[in-house]
Amino acid sequence: MASLPKRIIKETERLVSDPVPGITATPHEDNLRYFQVTIEGPAGSPYENGIFDLELYLPDEYPMEAPKVRFLTKIYHPNIDRLGRICLDILKTNWSPALQIRTVLLSIQALLASPNPNDPLANDVAEDWIKNEQGAKNKAREWTELYAHKKN
């Protein structure tokens, strides 16, 4: 594998020196393009008090191509399917090379705070969310309780 681009090295350093509240990202020892990530569920959302595991991979073409991110912790969310894949515009067509690991993770945290059932990845969840929002949120809260790490 080619040497690591300066940008990835600097981003990693800056993630450590200037961490984002509620988010951690640690590069893998053997592969510095692979990060273990945790995101705290935003306060006021059904994911509150849960800590979710994710994995993030920077492809060879990064930053011209978006990082690949996926939830490892099971989560009930209309834009996240059962394999943990995330439907988020900046991870696909609206990716910009000026975005960074930091901004991507912040956007995912924001997606937890405001789900978008009209652009779903998990159709059944989205349907549930549209037809019975309160019920869906209760289920999301239940799953957070069941599968996510507890805060503190």
Binding site: Y57, P59, V69, R70, R85, K92
Partner: peptide
């Protein structure tokens, strides 16, 4: 060949 955040893309070999 652009991946839409598939589950196993994170595994480099599969990718």
């Amino acid at each position: 060949t652009e991946f839409v955040n598939d589950a196993d893309i994170l595994n480099h070999k599969n990718y």
